[in-house]
């Protein structure tokens, strides 16, 4: 019974995060400018990481946690690189 409560609310939470991922992807694809796209990517990886944590909660295995950590690290590095490029790219252009 109690497990069912948890199952259901985790499903709802995961659907909400799925919608959040779609919205972030919309901003990432539609821009309008390059900084908006990078901001969308930044939001997207954070939401994806949270989604993986919820998958971990649902399955009870900690492998998802490792994946979430890798996404967090790679996402951070890529966003910083892109933000840097937005400044430097203009200068060299």
């Amino acid at each position: 019974m109690n497990t069912a409560i948890l199952e259901w609310s985790l499903t709802i939470a995961q659907i909400m995060l799925g919608i959040a991922m779609l919205l972030a992807t919309f901003r990432m694809v539609n821009g309008p400018r390059a900084q908006d796209k990078v901001l969308g990517l930044d939001a997207l990886y954070v939401v994806a990481m949270l989604e993986l944590l919820l998958f971990g909660l649902r399955s009870g295995s900690s492998i998802y946690f490792e994946a979430a950590l890798v996404i967090a690290i790679l996402g951070f590095v890529s966003t910083v690189a892109l933000a840097k490029f937005l400044m430097r790219g203009e200068v060299i252009e």
Partner: peptide
């Protein structure tokens, strides 16, 4: 979990 997902959804 619901609160966290809701806040994140609001953000996006």
């Amino acid at each position: 979990a619901l609160l966290g997902a809701f806040l994140t959804l609001l953000g996006t």
